[in-house]
Design a protein around this nucleic acid. Structure first.
Lengths: 157, 157
DNA sequence: TATTGTTATACTCTATAACTATA
DNA sequence: TATAGTTATAGAGTATAACAATA
């Protein structure tokens, strides 16, 4: 298919088609890039990037989570989390606290300011998704999330 | 929802749930990361990264495509494409050719070696997707691609 | 020995701005 | 003036390897 394709465009589509458009991975990437760019615009004034947001959200939802566990939940390395937590702590959105019983761990707790910032940010993110994905019906969104969850379940921790 | 969540895990899932898991953007990212990592493993020995592969594929499918048009199709800036084309040209997989009528443009053409590499790579990619996404039925894959296309159609060129 | 947090370092991918040569 | 390709530079985001403190 698309064997001797030319640059001519199909009648019902602005874009020329290629084998790329049938690959799940490539479509995941392009869709992700669109969502990410729109996310940044939505949280621009709050200076919260996608990483900061997801980390803050998990800290707010799971008080006293350790950095190791947070990294695992985010699917990134512990080392990569340090800069994220540093930034959030420097902005007063969370604090590292010590835990009795194991002096190695740094339990993370959102500050009141961090809680407020998280609630506001979550609202902005929900608005952003509501608008951006308005091309999809509620059912289509559910289906999409469900399919993506199946892919995520493949993750090799 | 998930208001006072703890680190307790749900019964039917290894992972604790959070509001993050209901966000389309976040699920897109995590699924994309999984697909990308598996892609790299699959094309490891051929030393073809996702970017190189997608660029080579489009050059093979649209002979004499210009760099500007290729960049547009890939959704990246012209400047970012230079290094990709440089690498593919240095490896003898494509060549920059001049076009009569406009001496500014560099029309790209896959070499025979590039054609061969592309066909092999496409096979490896199809195998990789077949295996990785075997948790999805054929119909689910079609649905997923269809939904992702709807999101991609939002792209502001 | 293993784990937590950390640092140093490098790699991938992308963007912006400015340049050149053409048109 | 505008476009094609290019260069320089910077910014996200991630990974690997090694280390100190602690278990």
């Amino acid at each position: 298919m698309n064997e001797s394709a030319t640059l001519a465009q199909s009648d019902d589509d602005q874009r020329p088609l290629s084998d790329l458009d049938s690959l799940i991975g490539y479509n995941l990437k392009r869709a992700y890039m669109i969502a990410q760019a729109d996310f940044r615009k939505a949280l621009d004034e709050d200076q919260l990037g996608p990483r900061d947001f997801s980390a803050l959200l998990l800290v707010a939802q799971f008080p006293e989570i350790t950095q190791s566990r947070l990294a695992r939940m985010l699917g990134i390395e512990r080392s990569g989390l340090v800069a994220i937590v540093d930034a959030l702590e420097n902005r007063g959105l969370l604090k590292r606290t010590h835990v009795e019983g194991d002096r190695r761990v740094q339990a993370l707790v959102a500050t009141p300011k961090g809680q407020t910032a998280y609630v506001k940010a979550l609202g902005l993110v929900r608005d952003h998704e509501e608008k951006l994905f308005s091309v999809l019906t509620d059912q289509e969104r559910d289906t999409l999330v469900s399919l993506l969850h199946k892919i995520r379940a493949l993750e090799t921790d």
